[in-house]
């Protein structure tokens, strides 16, 4: 009884949201066709989709997307490794823990893109700088969540683990990491979102080298060639990838882990 009701409720929600989005899309098309704004600056949704289709077919947008994903993968991967090392050291040494907390307090509010000028000075332009910006943008949510997560594991679970003879790395691997997983997942979600933002923003500020650019560069270039439908197309691809990763990766993992384990607050 209850289950079906719940299902119905979530169905209603999805339907409601879907209708809303369709409504916004129709509104967009109507406003564009009414030509209240210059068509050059406000293209119709249909022209955006037609454009997107051609760019999908000619492979340009796919290549850009792959490159963006490569940049984000590299930056996020590095951030995960750094965050893991930092949070683990902070766990072992109270002194390092103080340092990490100080760093988090000072640097977390700083948007990754704000450090771009310095990164360009140090690393020059190009993929390495974008990766650095992504790294900087995504590392703080990761460290913060790992740090809190590792401390949220109940003391009795730790002792139950120690009782079984676990210590050091094994204790971290078998007890602390799964125990901190709800936080880790949140950290990864936030980090992923920030990595995307950083990659697109960084490319639009200095535009990576042409052939090596990702979606940010795509949008940047299209803007200068006044291909505004393509600019919107790039944005739509970013939105779709964000949605897809949220639904197919994060939610998939969440359902199979912390929701099954009863470790969510929901």
């Amino acid at each position: 009884m209850k289950v079906t009701k719940l299902k119905k409720k979530s169905m209603n929600k999805t339907l409601n949201q879907g209708l809303f989005i369709v409504g916004v899309m129709i509104l967009w098309e109507l406003v564009a066709r009414a030509q209240w704004f210059p068509v050059l600056l406000f293209p119709s949704l249909s022209s955006v989709f037609v454009n997107l289709l051609t760019e999908l077919v000619n492979g340009e947008i796919g290549g850009r997307l792959l490159f963006s994903l490569y940049l984000i993968g590299a930056g996020l991967g590095l951030a995960v490794v750094t965050a893991a090392v930092t949070a683990t050291s902070a766990l072992i040494s109270p002194i390092i823990s103080d340092w990490v907390q100080a760093l988090m307090a000072v640097l977390h509010p700083l948007p990754g893109i704000a450090v771009l000028p310095i990164i360009i000075l140090w690393l020059g332009t190009g993929p390495q700088s974008i990766i650095a910006v992504i790294w900087f943008s995504s590392i703080w949510p990761l460290i913060t969540n790992l740090h809190t997560g590792l401390r949220s594991v109940p003391a009795t679970q730790m002792e139950a683990g120690r009782n079984l003879g676990l210590k050091g790395i094994a204790l971290i691997r078998f007890i602390l990491l799964p125990g901190a997983f709800p936080y880790i997942l949140t950290g990864l979600r936030v980090a992923w979102a920030r990595a995307w933002q950083a990659s697109v923003a960084a490319e639009m500020v200095f535009g990576a080298s042409g052939g090596e650019g990702g979606l940010g560069w795509f949008i940047y270039k299209k803007r200068f060639f006044m291909e505004i439908p393509s600019v919107f197309g790039g944005m739509i691809v970013i939105i779709l990838v964000g949605l897809l990763v949220e639904r197919l990766c994060f939610e998939w993992v969440e359902v199979r882990t912390i929701r099954r384990w009863g470790m969510t607050s929901e």
Partner: peptide, 23 residues
């Protein structure tokens, strides 16, 4: 040479070139 270009405002690019960094 399209794959070699980077888009940079003049002052930044001049600074980068003079310091022989990046470009």
């Amino acid at each position: 040479l399209d794959n070699n270009i980077v888009a940079m405002p003049h002052p930044d690019a001049a600074a980068a070139l003079i310091s022989k960094k990046g470009i």
